[in-house]
Nucleic acid binder design. Structure first.
Lengths: 346, 346
DNA sequence: TTGTATGCGTTATCAA
DNA sequence: TTGATAACGCATACAA
């Protein structure tokens, strides 16, 4: 009764599991079983099927495969920061490296979302099994949604200390504190902080580490500067406006990003302030350019490839194990001494 | 005869198109139609359905939706370069910005592949409808596969001049040539090139532009340097080994990346060579740091956000229109004069 | 204009 | 150990 008029188009016919089954003389179910390494299949049959697969150059359809499973096989890397802030920052390239290496070993694909609207789409349309949030800020509009969501997620980078989220984070607090201690160790008593924007959780951590160290060492409080963003021009601007108002200078600055430090360096140069003679500077992140600057920038370094990798691993555990893992992992940072730091003049 | 024993688990029940249909008192087909803005649906019914959708907070399943269409709704951004080379390079952040903005307006999601194996997976498993190749190199193993593939694809960045691929590319050749002309214009006769690795198509373009300009202007041929990669340390090393061999120096260098130029700058500083008094330097790419260097780096600038955007747009046209578009679009670059260039000494 | 039925490519449940 | 057959969530040709 069925009228099956198959239009045999000359176009490339996508080979599916049924073709393989036919060719191997078995049922689609059996093909599916060898595809999934199901042990309940006769070794001989298995070989026959594998041969058919190879001969037809058959490749399983990823999405179709996951449909019955109620999964997608995709993970998302999500941020709402503009690309200059995130991609131009070598910090993240390390993180990506770690994530990439883990995903390479896993069966998961990676989706990328550069804007809140893209991200919402990913979440809403059940396109991903889990989410890696990166470069989160306090007022990011989607934050609550994600936390309340059932979708497994981890955040990389600073986040609020108390939450139900799993976070992997450089030790901003400890890193800045050790920079202060380093500077104090070579004689500085008046140390300032050039910090990033207040809505960045990182800024909060920086400040916490800074103030705690100042207190512990019983150093003078000289106030601190705040940049609008973490980029060069923001460091430049922050110092310029501070200096042009005739405010007093510390003998050293701890700066919360190398990019910021480069801007500050430029500003001091323009004003004829000598680094490190008149002013010492410690950056944060130790970007590749740091050591090639003139003078080379003293900075706070951490190996963050593992951080990205561990975040990815944990997320995968969460989605595969269908269990929630809540923890906060902090990665150590340490001062790399170079040419922008020296004992204060007098 | 059907034995339907629905296990009513207490877990969250994913709401599907059938639930909406039931709630609205229509068939699933009709719901599907309003989802796809099919005009052949009664306005009143449309409202009812929309209300049901809202009430149930229904979200269409992305993959399931595309399965019948024979599509995936995903595009891939692919590279085999290591993350430091690609992500740490502000050049790419511009490109990403363009791509992101276009995808935001489109219904497509973006997948990211950082390694050849991930990429192969994406292609094989029919997970994406199109591919954006970026930072391609001559011996990249997957290149032939992609070109022979039926999957729509575009490449961003230099590629071989003759091919069936659609490519969007900065005008490396013209940019370098204009830098040579600029230097000649302020009096330089002995101009050198510090180029990137030979397997980069960009290097070929640079060289082409350089040599052509030298010939046109009838300038002296002083040979050129080759760096192993486009990063700071490679520029540093290239100059060091050249200089320590006591070879003669030109009065100016055109350098094929700002990162390379920063390394070179560092090396000259270490050797006591004054820039721009003893040696002029022109970088390429005009990264944000360039103008904050001391002295600020003269560089070759181009606005490449549009390049990324146009590449994405074209790819989308290809997959939506199921047609092949072959073209080669080149984006203009121009010299931004800053502090590392000056007339030669004598 | 709407509903029915079928198919998309695979997994999974149940018999055999 | 294997094979029908029913999902998975949706789109669409065809019928009504």
């Amino acid at each position: 009764m069925k009228k099956q008029v198959k239009k045999k188009t000359s176009a490339k016919i996508p080979v599916g599991i049924v073709h393989v089954a036919k060719k191997a003389g078995v049922s689609p179910a059996t093909v599916s079983r060898v595809l999934n390494d199901n042990p309940t299949v006769d070794p001989k049959i298995r070989e026959i099927v594998k041969a058919a697969i190879a001969e037809l150059n058959y490749r399983p359809h990823f999405a179709a495969r996951n449909l019955p499973k109620g999964q997608t096989g995709n993970l998302a890397l999500v941020t709402a920061r503009s690309s200059p802030v995130i991609f131009a920052n070598p910090f993240f390239s390390k993180v990506f490296e770690g994530i990439g290496s883990v995903l390479d070993e896993s069966p998961f694909n990676l989706m990328l979302s550069l804007t809140p609207s893209q991200m919402r789409r990913l979440m809403d349309s059940r396109t991903v099994d889990g989410i890696i949030l990166i470069a989160v800020r306090e007022n990011d509009p989607y934050l609550e949604e994600v936390e309340e969501m059932e979708l497994p997620s981890v955040v990389i980078g600073a986040y609020r200390r108390i939450s139900q989220m799993t976070v992997f984070c450089p030790d901003y607090e400890g890193g800045v504190a050790s920079a202060v201690k380093f500077l104090a160790g070579i004689g500085h008593r008046r140390i300032g902080l050039l910090d990033g924007p207040p809505d960045s959780y990182k800024s909060g951590e920086d400040r916490r580490g800074f103030e705690e160290a100042i207190r512990q060492l019983d150093l003078e409080e000289v106030g601190s500067l705040t940049a609008e963003e973490f980029l060069e021009r923001d460091g430049f601007l922050a110092f310029c406006s501070h200096f042009s108002e005739g405010k007093p200078l510390p003998t050293a600055y701890v700066v919360s990003s190398d990019h910021l430090a480069i801007g500050l360096l430029k500003a001091t140069g323009d004003f004829g302030i000598k680094v490190p003679e008149d002013l010492s500077i410690v950056g944060f992140g130790d970007i590749p350019i740091a050591e090639h600057l003139q003078p080379p920038l003293t900075s706070i370094h951490g190996d963050l490839v593992e951080m990205g990798a561990e975040a990815a691993r944990t997320l995968i555990q969460m989605v595969e194990g269908r269990k929630k893992i809540i923890k906060r992992v902090v990665y150590p940072m340490q001062v790399v001494e170079r040419g922008t730091t020296a004992p204060p003049k007098a």
